[in-house]
Design a protein around this nucleic acid. Structure first.
Lengths: 193, 193, 193, 193
DNA sequence: AATGAATGAGGCTTCATTCAT
DNA sequence: GATGAATGAAGCCTCATTCAT
């Protein structure tokens, strides 16, 4: 199969997949995705060799987007807490504004169709941050947990927090703050608090 | 009187469903489930009117089992931290020993097929604990978060912790401890720490 | 299989079959019929060896009932037209008052499941009348058509008429009269009109 | 451009449906129809979205064909009786030559699967003729019956007649004539006879 | 490369009938 | 005899993928 010509179409398919997956879960038919993307059913398969491939690419694309969002305007010189708050804030804002993307990312994260390799790569989204942590931990600002463990906590608690924000929009701001506060106490040493 | 409907068969189907769902995800065919349960395809539908019904019943049954596990030997008179540690411990032990059940419960939790009602009921598993929290919060032992928020954090962090325990069995004990420690710092007031 | 004990149950099943067939057509499941009849699914098969058997028995039973209705108060000594009008009237009255029975009879009449033998027997419902015709024809009161042909016309035109009566209840009486009038002109010799 | 949808295949499926329905009634499985049509099972559903849709389309197609047959060489300038005889003749000839089509049309006419809308449309097959009747009635050539009533009688009596023709092929011609004669006397005023 | 008709395996579910109780 | 759970063969339909155009 030759290199597909149009990057636009690839994007269109991925975006359509988000819509349809958000609505129908993994049972989303490729035909519906193609239709929403404005391409023929067969065309989808020139851009993605199989549905599984499409799902994996989508997963990676979402992870990459999220990573990019978190790294945008990253306060490299601020203190650790500020850095983490930036990441938290970026993730939550993205997740709240793009609920379908968040939903689909969560879906795919537990899907049988996402290969171990994809999950591996996806996890590297957090690598940069993890690297920062490595240093900070040794400085005694953070509890002595593996950086990946800390990063994952941030993800898990932020996800949870977003759920509550959506459930009770009137208290969204408080959840947003409380969530980060809880996370920070979970991972920082008492001195830093 | 005709043959009575057998509770054993119902259990067999639910257990078979766990196996097959753990392996294939929601795409698990009812035929495979029936076969593994040792009943005819049609029999499955005398116990569960549809696949959706089966999944919802399974979800509720898992939630109920988990709740029971957590409530077993519950240290009603111990201090709050000990109580929470009990719940944490019970959940993690169950999850580690029954990895398929844990996997399936996670899957179903994000499934489109589980009705809002089921999720509602399932959530009440944590109600008892949540009620305890209600009191404790007012005593100033816990940060001023909604009890459900705290309960959900416990669940989320325990889940996360189990993931790491499975990933690095050699450090399982440390993760188990660190996980709870992190959770406790996340939700308790400084004084209590 | 021994002779079933209760004639009541047999009747109940036949009556239930009428209800369910009227609503669902031939796809009416035996289980629904049994339920409505207030007997167990299996019991149905002690009264009728198969669904096909049930349908055939029902068909015959309806034909027999219709025949009985038509023969009730039959004006043996009246003139031919009056006799026919009696039959017409009896049929139409029955059909209008028992729309489900009429519907089911029509359904079964075109069903693949009704054996040739049943149809043969069912046709004899009209035999008595047909026999009368045999004589009358030779008297020159009726056109020289086979009696069965005449009898069938009566049935067909009465059916048609009932359809219109149901469709336009406000003109029911007129259709009823016109229908018979048309039939009578169709089969009688000019002299008799 | 992809392969265009083939009118031939659509026809093949409709024709196959006639064969299988004539033999098995409405229980005719779509798989048998597809096989006989020489297409894959799934293909049937690209031409007809469901079995019900197929049956309705088939019903309409048969009605349309019948209408066309009746209107071919229609003697517009002949007298009323000749016109009706033409219609009668056309219908009976078609029905005798295409017994399966006739059988299936009769089946579908009483089927639960044919929508009211389809029946509505199908009925318009007779509209042209009915319109003619409207005028003729006012001229006193026909009895004062609603045109639709008269048209339906023609259909019913012709159907009946065909049944006898098939039953007793040796008397087919006589039935054919007698049938029309009966119909004509049923609907025309004495003067015209 | 793009299209969408064609394919057919496989899924969920129904249901007539059997048979253990 | 009555019951209704058990059975498994079909049935309708979906859908990932292929391929003729």
């Amino acid at each position: 199969m030759a290199r597909p010509r149009s990057e636009d179409k690839r994007e269109a398919i991925l975006n359509a997949a988000i819509e349809v997956l958000a609505e129908l879960g993994e049972r989303a038919p490729t035909s519906k995705i193609a239709k929403l993307a404005g391409v023929a059913e067969g065309t989808l398969f020139t851009y993605f060799s199989s549905k599984e491939e499409l799902l994996n690419q989508l997963y990676l694309s979402l992870k990459a987007e999220l990573r990019q969002v978190m790294m945008l305007h990253y306060p490299l010189t601020a203190d650790l807490k500020a850095q983490m708050q930036h990441v938290w804030q970026a993730y939550v804002t993205w997740g709240i504004n793009m609920p379908k993307k968040r939903k689909v990312m969560a879906q795919l994260s537990t899907s049988e169709q996402i290969t171990a390799e994809s999950k591996q790569i996806g996890m590297q989204s957090f690598c940069d941050m993890t690297n920062l942590l490595q240093e900070q931990t040794t400085l005694g600002l953070l509890r002595d947990y593996p950086p990946l463990f800390i990063g994952s906590m941030l993800g898990a608690l932020a996800d949870l927090t977003m759920g509550f924000m959506v459930q009770e929009p009137e208290n969204a701001d408080r959840y947003q703050e409380s969530g980060f506060e809880a996370f920070w106490h979970a991972v920082s040493t008492p001195i830093t608090s």
